[in-house]
Amino acid sequence: MNTRTDIRIPLIAVFEIALLLMLGILNDMLSQFSVYIFVPAVLLVAPCMFLNFTSAVAVAFCAGYMFEAFLPVRDGIAAFGLLAGALAGLWFAPRLRVLGKPSVSLVFTAMNALMFLLCAAVMPSGSADWISHGERLFFDFLFSSAFTAAAAPFAVSVCEGMFMLCGIDLDYYGRV
């Protein structure tokens, strides 16, 4: 294991904050159409794909806390779902790196679906009846999944581009 400070960690942290900001803006824009995208898995793409297990856990935890700080939920109701999903993602991260970008899209979409369904199960309904709530959840789930499928490979490419611009050789740190 490389003992030198991994410069990718602060870069990925900045990337995560920028991603959170963009998600906020996107949801703000989509609110006019009563659509909401719930995509915590997108925040796990960069740590999962580029960092070793310990660093990835630390960054994913911070990203998870930040993501949850944006949600109007209290006392860790969603934290279980989000961070359990985060751990599951990190657990399978080494396998992911062996596979290509199409698989990244597929795996992170499945992970996001898991987190969405966990949150849907534990969070109280915001609609008058269960039919309306179910319909709203279905569309939000559909859009969230589509966004994750599109954004996961994009996040990988952006990070690769960012590392290249900063002159970071990915092979130097090694793909764990």
């Binding site: 856990v57 998870g64 806390y65 949850e68 209290r74 006392d75 860790g76 934290a79 279980f80 961070l83 359990a84 751990l87 657990w91």
Partner: peptide
């Protein structure tokens, strides 16, 4: 390690946010 982290997930966020 996984079990410990899962346990931390259950108790940690709520406590930290509290």
């Amino acid at each position: 390690v996984f079990a410990a982290l899962l346990f931390l997930c259950l108790l940690g966020p709520g406590a930290v946010r509290h």
